[in-house]
Design a protein around this nucleic acid. Structure first.
Lengths: 127, 127
DNA sequence: CCGCACAATGACAAGGATTCTCAATAACGG
DNA sequence: CCGTTATTGAGAATCCTTGTCATTGTGCGG
């Protein structure tokens, strides 16, 4: 089961890398179309799922909307997210919080956490 | 446009109130069936959506899974969530974090935040 | 440089979740 | 008790995601 390098996967990674923010599958698909006009939506779903399973990208959930994804090396640089309720885009924000394990009941084991701030982004607030 | 009191809506609220944790639509439906055996899935979706729009319940997102919902008065008592990666249930946890607005870029306006811890719950850890 | 094996693709079918549609039901004011 | 009409339940329709499969094209060995 070797792994082969294709322009489709290359494109998807580039899109995610250049975006600098978590993107939905549809967003990735639209962006990838400009560099690989024949790419199929299935391929984007497949590739993103595989990257997620391999831990190369991380999923970000927003209530009522499809998941977004971002590169794991970004995710590894511990940070969190900001969801603009106006334009529905998601941004990365730096910084974190501590003492989380103290919030848990006895017997619970903490493995990770995800903080999503919400409000209005700079662009939307300006208008 | 008056609002009428029905046993279906009553049941859905009771289920959410008694659960004490965020539930998916399917979970609410299953639980509501015991008190109102004829209730339809459509009604549960409709009612939950309306309650969410009215701000009576709040949505909780988990990557790759349908949203969960909990009563707003619970949500108002500021708290957060713990997602067990073993049994996939979501629990409420007390406590919070501060200084979040300092994490935002200039021009961004913070209106709310959602913290989701993940790991293994007490029950699953015991086994 | 060529050809083969098979991983990856793209188009479409299939599946699951959620919303929509509409005739039938049942609150609630009169 | 009656009529109005909000609400319901069943199923169709829609959206998002995964599965299927013939075709394509990568990477290796010759």
């Amino acid at each position: 089961m070797e792994t082969r390098r294709t322009k489709q996967q290359q494109s998807i990674r580039e899109v995610l890398a250049e975006a600098g923010r978590p993107m939905s599958v549809q967003e990735v698909f639209d962006a990838a179309l400009t560099s690989v006009p024949t790419i199929g939506l299935s391929t984007v779903y497949r590739t993103i799922r595989r990257l997620a399973e391999q831990g190369e990208i991380a999923a970000v959930a927003v209530p009522g909307q499809p998941d977004r994804y971002e590169l794991a090396d970004v995710a590894a640089t511990h940070h969190h997210h900001f969801h603009c309720t106006e334009c529905d885009r998601v941004f990365d924000v730096r910084g974190c919080v501590g003492g989380l394990d103290r919030m848990l009941p006895p017997g619970f084991k903490l493995r990770g956490h995800e903080l999503t701030l919400s409000g209005v982004c700079g662009g939307c607030a300006a208008r």
